[in-house]
Design a binder for these strands. Structure first.
Lengths: 201, 201, 201, 201
DNA sequence: AATGAATGAGATTTCATTCAT
DNA sequence: TATGAATGAAATCTCATTCAT
């Protein structure tokens, strides 16, 4: 009996998939279970997605672009003040809050999903660029250690951010959002901690 | 006929498992394949390991303790000089070289292996301690920003190190070992870049 | 919205079915694909046919009667002359040309469609009768070996004709239509090839 | 519980497959059913064959080579006499008896198995050659109509033989083996039926 | 009459695990 | 100890069919 379900079957599947992937990890979830959890028949799943990895991919792409937008918005909103630290802090705060507010999606996107790599790689690369650019700008102004490789530093920073947030999400009681922001800020290659690098003899 | 195999069946299985896990990832490898690759019968596998995850666990534990030892040895060997940067750099260099020299093991240990988390978590925690302790010491000497949360900073640094090295191992042509060491050193919470943080009012 | 489709839905389905059955074989085709190829909705298919086998059956019956008619027409048109070979040749030529001009239908009808057997069997039987009758007539006139079993010979001839034409249609470059006609004529149980064989000492 | 089955699992699967394929046709049979019918577990099937088509293929190849051998043996055994009809009749009789004695295999091999074509084609082609060669020889001796295309005639004869025998096997009461042999002999392009047909009063 | 999303039974295939040898 | 054929539970995916619109 074809229950005349809403057209939002696809959305339901994505929601169910998000929960299941976050809970059990990519390989432990099966298409059947996603369909069931979405309150749909098995076949309906394949009407909307080629296989479970297609769901995973879609979830990851959505998360990635959501995070990028959150970051960009925070950055844009914080520009204008004279203090160069403010946009950096705002961007970091946006990332921390995004992770907190979309914990499942964040874990599914950056967590230990082999299938994720293919996408996370390129998109992370995309995030590397603006950070590297900013670093270079500050290097030219003598505000950042000129020996620092901007690309490598940006990549390293992102690895840190993602890794630290994933660790945090495993148990949010481990730290306060504020503390994470401050820590990430201080370790940020363009962070003010570094500004002082100059006085070195 | 029980082929008079060497008693090193266990070692052979670990070696075969390492290669397969590194190549295909934890969920894509099956116990039969490990046995086969080790040149042993299927049944023999179960004589030595409860299941493939036991192999994975063992590989990870070995890698973890290998890395810990490499770090500790480098640290110990570099003490004595007056420059506090030297032990930090030596430790970082040890980690980079360990990753380079045990690329497969490093990936299997820290890569996207869900089963790995359970172990990597605790052991990373163990690595956090010495770094946090050193940070606190330097804070008390006014060499490091006193506002930095030592535990969080240590955790963040390790996330960065692991993440950056995994990215590197995906394609070693992406960077030079030296560049990685310098980058990690400069971003290290106890790095000299930070020492200068003090002058802040 | 019920798109104001032409009432020729049935015809469209048959055409689409013919193409698909010829291309992929009876078991590889599904009703949804037929509907799709016909530019109709899935549900519409079931408004016109009980299932895909009903389409197959209809196609086969049409082909069978088309072939029978082509044969009969050619036979009728060629009667009257004194040479008894002429109607036989005309009938054979009609069959060869029918196969050539309706290659897909011919394959769908006689090819390896299990579901076809049930129908092809009886209808072939129907084609056996006139041939057997003609043979008997010529036997009574001493023109054909009296030992030949007319029913068996007729059945054998038809198996040959169908088999040879199917082989030909697999790749029409394999032979010329004329060559096929001549070959079939010479091997025809009532063929003159047989009669002429006599004068030999 | 791994019943320590005989090593002849493969043979059992082939036997079960033969029966099922003969009964239901290639597409109606599933690997599961074959395994079950063979008294084996599902997985055991895949231990021996890649899929059900591999079973089909093997059955067909065996049948094909069995038939070829039967034909060749009969031909060889009948040579030596002066009458050129004797080897032809012996070969035909061998084919008829092979079909009768291996009815299921014969149907599976030549019947409506789409998957069969690929193999039956080439092998039939192989059977065409000796017949065509014999025809050419007899043409050069003036014993056979020189206008007959040997390749086409050989191909046609085989189509007839296979088609007639398949029809017979559908219901063996339809004809006697002897009658089939005589009919096929008389319609054989090199058959003496042709030569002698005339002198009859 | 026409539609197509939804359904679930069933087919294919994989793999961890057992156990008789 | 060592072996590997055998097993069946479970996952993936297809497709004929229904029915609310």
């Amino acid at each position: 009996m074809p229950r005349p379900r809403l057209e939002d079957a696809r959305a339901r599947l994505l929601t169910a998939g998000l929960e299941l992937f976050a809970q059990h990890g990519g390989e432990r979830v099966n298409s059947n279970a996603i369909a069931r959890a979405a309150g749909l028949g098995v076949g309906t799943f394949y009407l909307h997605f080629a296989n479970k990895y297609a769901v995973l991919r879609e979830l990851q792409l959505r998360t990635l672009s959501g995070l990028r937008e959150a970051r960009a918005a925070a950055h844009a909103a914080s520009l204008g003040g004279g203090d160069p630290e403010i946009p950096v802090r705002a961007t970091i705060r946006a990332a921390v809050e995004f992770a907190r507010d979309h914990a499942e999606a964040y874990r599914v996107c950056f967590g230990r999903e082999r299938a994720a790599v293919a996408h996370a790689g390129p998109v992370l690369t995309e995030s590397v660029r603006p950070i590297a650019r900013a670093l270079r700008a500050r290097q030219s102004r003598g505000e950042v250690d000129p020996e620092l490789d901007p690309e490598l530093a940006a990549r390293a920073y992102l690895a840190m951010e993602v890794g630290l947030l994933l660790w945090w999400l495993e148990d949010p009681k481990r730290a306060e959002a504020d503390g994470l922001v401050e820590t990430l800020l201080r370790l940020h290659p363009a962070g003010t901690g570094r500004r002082a690098a100059a006085p070195r003899p």
